[in-house]
Design a binder for these strands. Structure first.
Lengths: 236, 236
DNA sequence: GTTGGTTCGTACGAAATCGTACAATCACTC
DNA sequence: GAGTGATTGTACGATTTCGTACGAACCAAC
């Protein structure tokens, strides 16, 4: 299977799939922004001020425990958006969102987004559907975290990143992946070796290259795909 | 800490917290229903036909993997509702919802709910906020599944059930809990013994009694509470 | 080229959980 | 009150992951 969630280059697919009048409505309020790696898009328990639609790059949503434990619960790129709590009329969330892979995109002030959604139920619906996809993704993250072995989770995660970038190369350290997956750094090192040994990826310092996507999907089979199907169904 | 998410007896809190005009709007379309244990409220990948607002009983949302692996990703009782995909304009989800503890509640046809939400943005917003709480809950399930030990996850799960029932007794088998948590049945048996040994619960055949809620919260500290805070913030 | 910080490879025993099995106990029916 | 099925208690080795540690490899700056 080829990459999922793909969309016309140079665009954000969530915006590209708006109908014409909604597109006209929101366009004037969007402005280009750089989304450098590490940029925080959403602070925990603080009102969302800007909502971002990546065109390149990958964002991570991270749940944070009482004691500060973190784990990634979802990621989004040019198929989606940050700040969905604006869409669910909840202003803020206890999670954090940040760019894990740098890129650029479009941004709109949260207040403004609220306004345009209010004036266009169809736009609201469109973003709501993305929220639903996000819930599905998070659910399957919970499923994978509960049932899947490290190697399978790693495969799933690499696939989800791969879907959201151009090309087959990503700048990722084992340390970073270990935090996202909530496992030991050393575990990730061993895991990547296994995938590398099977010829599915190639890993060099700070970089992972996907060699055999289908093979990776086979590795992740049970864990990958359902949220992506849901995206196709609802947004396409 | 006392039970969370509590609300006036004999009511569903999500409905009880609607404003007066919204309440009048939806009431005529609600009808009383029995929600016996095991009752399926929502089939995976099939359009939601009825939406349920429990008054007693507890419902579970379960994510299902490609190979049929299951894990509970959220639960709801008289503080919430089933069928949130109607709220997110997505009609259906790849998950299943069913009653894990029997009870009764109110039901409305999905179509009708769609209509009344369309005619009342404030009602739509209210349910959207619950959807946001659900996303938070699911995120923290992913967090717990990734980071917490069995004993901690078990405590968290018992607390979440406890919040949603009257009294301190629940009919639960180890087998059932093991499926919800995605662990071995034997593991749950050992886990309950530990909690029992600490005097936090009492377990008899097919039944768990919460003895020391605060103690349980201490056990689950890192994993429990944030989604509940979010509920208070948004619905109260 | 040396230095220093990041990243990666690898090792170790400890802990948690798994998969499985089987016997004991309970609740209910006949 | 004997039988039956569901539930629970307990055991076993196997597997996975943990926590930690330390050295090697790499990269960039001086």
């Amino acid at each position: 299977m080829p990459k999922r969630l793909s969309c016309p280059k140079g665009q954000n697919n969530l915006l590209a799939t708006l109908n014409e009048s909604d597109s006209k409505l929101i366009l004037p309020h969007l402005r280009q922004v750089e989304l450098e790696r590490g940029r925080v898009l959403e602070d925990p328990d603080r009102p969302v001020e800007m909502v971002y639609f990546p065109i390149t790059g990958v964002g991570s949503m991270v749940a944070i425990g009482r004691d500060g434990r973190r784990i990634e619960i979802g990621l989004f790129g040019r198929e989606g958006m940050s700040g969905t709590s604006v869409v669910s009329e909840s202003d803020q969330t206890p999670m954090e969102s940040f760019m894990q892979v740098g890129g650029h995109g479009l941004a709109i002030r949260a207040e403004m987004l609220r306004d345009v959604m209010e004036s266009s139920p169809s736009m609201h619906r469109h973003f709501l559907r993305f929220l639903h996809v996000l819930l599905t993704q998070t659910s399957h993250t919970a499923l994978a975290n509960g049932h899947a072995k490290l190697e399978e989770r790693l495969s799933r995660w690499l696939l989800m990143c791969h879907d959201r970038i151009d090309g087959d190369e990503m700048e990722l350290t084992h340390e970073f992946m270990s935090v996202m997956l909530g496992v030991r750094r050393a575990g990730v090192t061993v895991g990547t070796h296994i995938l590398e040994g099977k010829g599915l990826i190639r890993a060099t310092r700070g970089r992972i290259i996907i060699l055999d996507r289908e093979g990776l999907e086979a590795q992740a089979m049970q864990s990958y795909g359902i949220p992506e199907d849901e995206y196709d169904r609802l947004i396409g």
